[in-house]
Simulated assay, not measured.
Amino acid sequence: MNIRAEHPPQDPAGRWFRRLAPRPAACLTLVCVPHAGAGTAAFGPWADLLPPEIEPVAVRLPGRESRLRDPVPSDWPALAQEFSLALERWITGPYLLFGHSMGAMLVYEAVVRGLARPPVRVLLSGCRAPHVPRALPAIHDLPTERFRAELGRLAGTPGAVIAAPRLMALLEPSLRADIRLAETWSRPAGAADVLPVPATVFAGLDDAVAPPAAVSAWRSLAPHGFRRRQVGGGHFFPYERAPEFLGLLNDELALCLGTPRRSHPS
């Protein structure tokens, strides 16, 4: 078993993870970190579509779902340290780290800071390399109405949520905190830490937030192995183009398991 099955609810490390499809005989755990503002539900539809040798585990970041009252750390070192401690305590066997957008940033920050048991590989989706400037203007410090309008334009937050004043009043602080972390994330060119493990990146062909060239720039930080895969769609291609994306993700998982299917690295 690759994740500790039982933990007291008050244990701060155990609160980080949700087992989407318990598979005690799995060879690898796929630990999935969501984008800014999202929770474990983002990965729920994937559970039955992954190989049986893979156990999917979703990360529950501070400030959402059952952790709604937990403050989002205000800086990357604090968030990465908390996440790393939870990983080392609760993920017990070989694992992969997947992250989309801000989730990929957290994967990088945790891995380059050094983990006692690093992942077999990192899978970075919809995320510019840290030395590449962001492609769009920042929105995290906009006044409320403009901030909410930009959330709708970027399509990461459902319109029904934005249109619910009470719900948005509850969610907006954590959304702003997440987006601030994502928008201020950077490492100087030539000084970004290289990944200590192989990497695969996924890019959306029409992604305005993390354009394909900005995602491909991860190659210079992946000396232990690099693969790139491109998917149609915009920034939320893993969910908007789920069949296409999951086909490529399953190819990656098969390669990690040593049973290649139809790999198309580019």
Score class of each variant (00 low, 15 high):
N2S: 05
I3N: 01
D11C: 02
D11H: 00
A13D: 15
G14I: 03
R15M: 04
R18G: 06
A21V: 03
L30G: 04
P34R: 00
F43Y: 05
G44R: 02
G44C: 04
A47C: 08
P52N: 09
I54W: 14
V57E: 09
V59R: 05
V59T: 05
V59S: 09
L61W: 08
S66I: 11
R67H: 10
V72P: 07
V72D: 13
F83I: 12
L85F: 14
L87T: 12
E88K: 04
R89Y: 14
W90H: 08
G93W: 14
F98I: 04
G99D: 02
H100Q: 05
L106P: 05
V107E: 13
A110D: 13
V111L: 05
V111M: 09
R113Y: 14
G114N: 10
A116N: 09
P118H: 13
S125F: 14
C127F: 14
V132Y: 10
R134A: 14
I139A: 07
L142M: 06
P143E: 05
R148Q: 15
A149H: 08
P158E: 15
L167S: 07
L171A: 10
P173T: 11
R180L: 15
P188L: 08
P188G: 13
T200S: 04
V201E: 04
A210T: 04
V215H: 13
S216I: 02
A217V: 07
S220R: 01
L221A: 09
F226W: 01
H235Q: 15
F236Q: 02
F236K: 09
P243G: 10
D251E: 12
L257T: 03
S263R: 09
S266P: 11
